[in-house]
Design a protein around this nucleic acid. Structure first.
Lengths: 199, 199
DNA sequence: TCCTCAAGTGTCAGCGACTGTCAATCATTG
DNA sequence: CAATGATTGACAGTCGCTGACACTTGAGGA
């Protein structure tokens, strides 16, 4: 577990976020598909080849921040108390997302990114892929918890479905928040209350 | 609403499924990413350009059948009785999927396709995209139903989340069925029973 | 001080998905 | 038979992305 990273990694991160900022403004202006990697690289002042040394693909630029948030959720879930009902643990692990929506500055930025994603089928696909990966991570966390509680009879399908259901609530609230950003938290709570499993 | 389509469309469909069959066997042999469109076209006996006249992208070949199944689910849901609880309607609209898993011939074919999808990140993304589209369609169907029952107070976020939860059950059962195809139906029922909303 | 080594970069060449264009072909219809 | 419209192949081009190689630069040791 490395916290900050070496000096080299820090400067690498700095370049990455410079690229990301530049690219995002281009995407917002012209759209994702209409912006070529060459243009981004030129705007940053580097060759196309170097762009691909910082990001494995054009898609990744957009999801730079989301990746970190996603990891945060998984570690949060793992840190919840063992006795807490799983549904509540899932809800609590979503808190960082709600906090981002509460902070106006982050909200503005995230909304811009979401607009970019919604307008590009390719990006939507990539986004859903990340969501799927998040679900796998959350499922593993819950399964590991079940083991630690020495519940041998845990039904993997049910856990997977429950995580999927919770993430569906998150996704639905996010879509809803596209129209009314303030309503994210309330929407999420309504959805998760309505879908709460009986057990 | 056209049922069969004109003679031209029928022959077009025939060519499409010939391409699809050829492509699938190539994918199964060498993998999706490792098979070029040129190879597929050559194997079918046409130019690459013509391939793209039948399929908008290389991805689409794989999802030819799934698309139809998806439409089937949406129309099924719309046809369920108004009084039926939404969760039950969703479960019933999934019946065609269960039936496919029950039929050994279809199951074999679908399992092959699923293996292809699972081995390619790009295809997984495309698959999740279709699932998302299915969710949109199902959500619309349920919302339309609420209108017909003249329930004005329907919470769109909750409906969206509920559909998402049901589809999460479907997805979880599908993943589970990758290991044990016979267990699809049981897995789906366990998941949907466990996640059934209280209301 | 000079040499060396490693990291970062630019250039170039190439692959594969996909698109636009145009001319040739083929079947249909009058 | 001639005109028309749909289908096709051939070709050229764009864009995302990768591999190979040469160059620069800055840090550290001889």
């Amino acid at each position: 577990m490395v916290a900050g990273g070496s000096l080299r990694e820090v400067s690498r991160r700095a370049v990455q976020s410079r690229i990301a900022r530049t690219a995002e403004s281009l995407f917002a202006d012209k759209g994702f598909e209409e912006t070529t990697v060459d243009e981004i690289a030129a705007a940053v002042g580097m060759s196309q080849r170097s762009f691909f040394r910082y990001f494995a693909s054009k898609d990744e630029v957009v999801f730079e921040g989301l990746e970190r948030l996603s990891e945060q959720l998984a570690t949060r879930l793992a840190a919840r108390p063992l006795e807490e009902p799983e549904w509540d643990s899932l809800r609590r692990s979503f808190d960082p997302v709600a906090e981002r929506f509460a902070d106006p500055e982050h909200r503005e930025h995230d909304a811009a990114i979401q607009r970019i994603i919604d307008r590009s089928p390719r990006l939507l696909a990539a986004y859903l892929c990340r969501l799927e990966r998040l679900q796998r991570a959350l499922t593993e966390a819950l399964l590991a918890r079940a083991v630690r509680r020495s519940e041998c009879g845990t039904d993997e399908v049910v856990v997977r479905a429950m995580v999927g259901g919770a993430c569906a609530c998150l996704h639905a609230a996010t879509l809803h928040a596209a129209e009314d950003p303030e309503a994210f938290g309330r929407g999420l709570d309504r959805a998760m209350t309505a879908l709460r499993p009986a057990a």
